[in-house]
């Protein structure tokens, strides 16, 4: 990538694919599971030291099925960097970046809670937003929304 801001990163990680998507030119880096923590750590050292966001996505029919998307921000370069890591469904385990960004703590817990993605080396990987005894991972695509049929007064089913 010829971009000056990302040059040191792409030099250090030659097989990471950088791209710019959309008309607004958002920078995305596709990283492998093994390089994930090192890449995030290197990004932090090269100016992207503000932790913005971490979320999971379930692509269902794609291999790898899940994806972790990390959003970092750089105050000095005034740029954002989006890091995407594919996580296979057979073993949805990925390293935790709480050692790099403590702010990822709650985000990883939420991804664990709603997707079932396990983060190794996380200080406290428990359910966050759902009750502790909840079964299942709601944001997965094979989990239904859980809507109840709505009945109206006077409709034949209520009588």
């Amino acid at each position: 990538m010829s971009d000056r801001v990302f040059a040191p990163l792409s030099k250090r990680f030659p097989d990471v694919e950088f791209e710019q998507v959309l008309a607004s030119q958002q920078d995305v880096a596709h990283v492998s599971l093994e390089q994930y923590v090192d890449f995030v750590s290197a990004a932090r050292d090269h100016g992207f030291n503000v932790f913005s966001d971490l979320c999971g996505v379930d692509y269902l029919r794609r291999k790898p099925r899940f994806e972790i998307v990390v959003n970092l921000l750089s105050h000095e370069h005034v740029r954002r960097l989006r890091i995407r890591v594919g996580v296979p469904a057979a073993d949805p385990t990925v390293a935790s970046i709480t050692s790099v960004f403590p702010g990822a703590n709650f985000y990883e817990r939420e991804a664990f809670d709603l997707f079932g993605i396990v983060f190794t080396d996380h200080p406290d990987l428990t359910r966050l937003v759902l009750p502790d005894d909840w079964e299942g991972y709601p944001l997965r695509k094979d989990y239904s929304v859980g809507s109840v049929p709505v009945r109206f007064k006077g409709s034949p089913k209520t009588t």
């Binding site: 913005s52 966001d53 979320c55 996505v57 998307v69 959003n71 702010g103 703590n105 709650f106 985000y107």
Partner: peptide, 27 residues
């Protein structure tokens, strides 16, 4: 922030809101 993944259809495939209070409660 709003992170939206679209698969070309009328409804988002994934919508994630990056909300500030989430970080603040963590802090």
């Amino acid at each position: 922030g709003m992170y939206i993944v679209s698969d070309g259809r009328e409804k988002p495939w994934r919508m994630h809101a990056r909300t500030p209070s989430f970080n603040h409660v963590q802090a």
